[in-house]
């Protein structure tokens, strides 16, 4: 059996798209939280300024909320393997001769597509609210905008891959959805707050700041800032590199756990 099976990956992606189209309320529901975070925080903290950066809060916040959308949507898709388990469909998938890594890649393809669509909707909403998209050079030039958006897209794919794999890893270790809120509240929210999505990580006490550098989303948010407003703490290429490493590690981890999970 070939390890990477494009037809199977496409099939799994297709299924995810059909489900996506048929569950519009879930999509709208998923957009609610990031949208209200964006809308209320950018109004409420509009006069906030940070010592480390001169940009206005809406510009600072928007890439962070895009990262948040990707984080939540991706982990949810990953963990929703458990729904397939609950409804029995996972059995149907797992007895096919498709390799486990291809099944995981199929889920990533479907999940990343939905997560990125949601992220782009949030970006669009942000622009409507008053977010000033300035591109990778921060000068609103066409060249900077185009290359910024392309690079942002690549970052989004890597962020989605990392966190869908994380979700699948959790799903492989859990029996049912019971542990879901545990994962949400004790893993996903801390990852979100540590990432610098809402405030610069320099404001974190030094005792936890090092944790921020272990959080893949930190590099995701920083890279997105670089791409969309032209200001980032680290070089975009360091962010890119960190995300490539994190997605490879999480992919290996996720497929290992997924391979050894029992379905019944």
């Amino acid at each position: 059996m070939n390890l990477i099976n494009p037809q199977a990956i496409y099939t799994l992606w297709l299924r995810e798209m059909l489900r996506f189209l048929r569950m519009k309320s879930r999509v709208i529901g998923a957009l609610g939280m990031p949208f209200f975070f964006l809308a209320f925080l950018s109004v409420g903290f509009r006069n906030t300024s940070f010592s480390t950066t001169s940009i206005d809060y809406t510009s600072f916040l928007t890439p962070g909320i895009i990262g948040m959308t990707l984080l939540f949507s991706s982990t949810f898709t990953g963990i929703s393997v458990l729904w397939d388990k609950e409804f029995g469909f996972l059995k149907e998938i797992m007895v096919t001769p498709v390799s486990r890594i291809s099944i995981l890649l199929g889920r990533i393809a479907g999940g990343a597509t939905t997560a990125i669509m949601e992220a782009l909707i949030i970006l669009f909403a942000a622009v409507v609210i008053g977010f000033n998209l300035r591109g990778i050079y921060g000068d609103s030039s066409v060249k900077g905008m185009v290359s910024g958006v392309i690079l942002a897209f690549i970052l989004m794919v890597l962020i989605a891959t990392t966190f869908i794999s994380l979700g699948v890893s959790f799903a492989s270790l859990m029996e049912d959805m019971e542990g879901y809120s545990l994962v949400m509240n004790f893993v996903i929210f801390p990852l979100f707050f540590l990432s610098g999505a809402l405030f610069p990580i320099d404001n974190l006490p030094s005792s936890v700041r090092f944790l921020a550098f272990l959080d893949p989303l930190t590099y995701g948010v920083d890279g997105l800032r670089g791409c969309l407003i032209g200001e980032s703490e680290l070089s975009i290429f360091i962010d890119l590199l960190a995300l490539i490493v994190s997605s490879l590690i999480m992919l290996a981890f996720g497929s290992y756990l997924f391979k050894h999970t029992e379905v019944d």
Partner: peptide, 30 residues
């Protein structure tokens, strides 16, 4: 897995897909 077919005792279909789509999914995976 390449040589077997299974009809499970418990439901194992995708409720959000039609009958034809469920069958098509299966055929593509094989």
């Amino acid at each position: 897995r390449a040589h077997i077919g299974v009809v499970f005792q418990d439901p194992s279909v995708d409720n959000k897909l039609t009958g034809r789509e469920n069958l098509d999914f299966h055929a593509r995976m094989y």
